[in-house]
Design a protein around this nucleic acid. Structure first.
Length: 499
RNA sequence: GCCCCCAUCGUCUAGAGGCCUAGGACACCACCCUUUCAAGGUGGAGAUCGCGGGUUCGAAUCCCGCUGGGGGUACCA
């Protein structure tokens, strides 16, 4: 047992947005590093020029930052092993692959893509497993010279042993054995001078001193190749941990965007809080005990362990994540915190000004009073504008007159009730909820109405909607002036419609 | 086709031979609370632990086979 320092890495390929599956992999690596006082390295695997999506790097960095998954080395944090973009490390791969060729562990292959395709099709037609036939393995020096003279740039293939077995030790599953003769002579270096994943990954993991490779289960089949590469280089391989796959909610296939939002930034934009996403993601593939499932990031760092990571695939549940998000907003985050996070959405809707962003401004203080009333009803932060608009604007009167009139009442009864309510509230102390409640309950009784029959019209008059926070707290926060104006407006609408 | 992985309520899971008449959570249903909607509280329904063989005094837990699901099979990662 060597005492290598703990160093893990998250190595996304910038071909699109960071999706929750990738985020889960990043999270587990990050937790493992933080748990053991190790390093978490971010490395960008941009070796596929064709699939590269320029802006996706910025998106990946933003996603990780939003989730709080900070890296100790990587883009923007140049460490001992910089650069952290594989496209800037091309000489290293070249040197290493040359060494393999020199030592007879790899060879140049001049086969054209056309020949490869024909070969594959012929094999399929014959019902034989498709794969490279190792034609170029036995090329003579003269033949190689000739082909090079023709201007053909070869790829470099790994010379896989054709007998024996390669045993992969996966931390979650134990030993997995492969017969070498069924393994292929995989391409290590492409003809455009870029390495394939396999080469770049092995070289960098070694050069960067990675102790544990934690990646998705889809990599298990290429693990024997990687192990053979480590052996060919004479390096000690890192510990391998293949994390269980995340499946679509219906269990059909790897999680894909077909069935819902999978981009981390999509969740950010739709009003999810990062703490909830982290907590949910931690639970896909990992669990703590038979009952606890709410964990702060600190808890996770303290409690995370590979022993409790499951090897079996899990389906992604949008419902559970939504519940978790609401739970965090309702029960975990403080009022101040939620208020602060809501401000940008209120600003975007034009409901509050720049000043509301200042924690000690009067405007923020009002925002907080408002948020206090809706905090328990927020599922996502983005809902806040819709839910609280009436606290910030005067445009509340475009509701249907009919919604002022509850079942088993008449417009006349409601009109009278609203006028009486207006008169009574005109004398009320709006800072005192109990006073408001006492007056309105008394009024209901006096008018022979059920509480709801009086409260609903007032609610609609004051908020413009049939669903709102509690009536008395709403009146309190809204204040006397605005409340009375809105009651009068409602009364006016009723007068117009009854005559 | 070939190689590989996985297998407990609809879903995520606890369970590392007797504590399991299988526990928790989401979703679902009912009731309570109640001025609406949430939140909250209480209760309910829901798993013969995929199937079949073993091993054992005893198996959800160990072994084998089958079935099912998933992954891989590119000059993608």
């Amino acid at each position: 047992m060597s005492e290598k320092p703990i160093r893990v890495r998250f190595a996304p390929s910038p071909t699109g947005d960071l999706h929750v599956g990738g985020a889960r992999t990043a999270l587990f690596n990050w937790l493992f590093a933080r748990r053991h006082g190790g390093d978490f390295i971010l490395r960008i695997e941009d070796t596929d020029q064709k699939r590269l999506v320029g802006q996706s790097i910025a998106g990946i960095l933003e996603s990780l930052s939003w989730l709080g998954l900070t890296w100790d080395e990587g883009p923007g944090v140049e460490g001992l092993h910089a650069p952290y973009f594989q496209s800037e490390r091309l000489e290293r791969y070249r040197e290493h692959v040359d060494r393999l060729v020199r030592e007879g562990a790899a060879y140049a292959c001049f086969c054209s893509p056309e020949r490869l395709t024909e070969l594959r099709e012929a094999q399929m037609a014959r019902g034989v497993p498709p794969g490279y036939d190792r034609y170029c393995r036995s090329l003579t020096v003269e033949q190689i010279g000739e082909l090079r003279a023709q201007g053909i740039t070869p790829v470099i293939r790994f010379k896989m042993p054709d007998s024996g077995t390669t045993t992969v030790v996966d931390a979650l599953r134990g030993e997995i054995s492969y017969e070498n003769r069924l393994l292929e002579d995989t391409v290590l270096m492409k003809s455009d001078g870029f390495p394939t994943y396999h080469l770049a990954n092995v070289v960098d993991d070694h050069l960067m001193g990675i102790s544990h490779v934690m990646r998705g289960e889809e990599w298990i089949p290429s693990a024997p190749l990687h192990l053979q590469l480590y052996r060919a280089f004479g390096w000690e391989p890192p510990a391998l941990v293949h994390l269980p796959l995340i499946l679509n909610p219906n269990g059909k296939g790897k999680l894909s965007k077909r069935q819902g939002a999978v981009g981390v930034l999509e969740y950010k934009q739709s009003g999810y809080v990062p703490e909830a996403l982290i907590n949910y993601l931690a639970l896909v593939g990992w669990s703590y005990d038979h009952q606890r499932e709410i964990f702060s990031v600190g808890d996770l760092i303290e409690l995370f362990s590979l022993e409790r990571v499951s090897p079996s695939p899990a389906r992604f549940s949008f419902e559970k994540l939504a519940w978790m998000n609401q739970y965090y907003i309702n029960h975990i985050l403080t009022l101040d915190d939620v208020s602060r996070r809501c401000v940008p959405y209120l600003q975007a809707a034009g409901l509050v000004t720049e000043a509301a962003g200042e924690p000690d401004s009067a405007e923020f203080s009002y925002v907080r009073d408002v948020i206090a009333l809706v905090k328990d009803r927020l599922k996502v932060l983005t809902e806040v504008a819709e839910l609280t608009a009436f606290f910030f604007t005067e445009g509340t009167e475009d509701y249907e007159v009919a919604s002022l009139v509850p079942r088993k009442t008449t417009p006349e009864v409601v009109l009278n009730a609203l006028e009486r309510a207006r008169d009574s509230l005109g004398e009320a102390d709006f800072d005192n909820e109990a006073d408001l409640e006492e007056r309105l309950r008394g009024l209901a009784e006096e008018l022979g109405l059920k509480a709801g029959q009086l409260f609903m019209p007032i609610r609609v008059a004051v908020t413009g909607r049939t669903v709102s926070p509690g009536l008395f707290e709403t009146l309190r926060v809204l204040g006397k002036d605005r409340s009375l104006v809105r009651l009068e407006t409602a009364a006016g609408k009723l007068r117009n419609s009854t005559t």
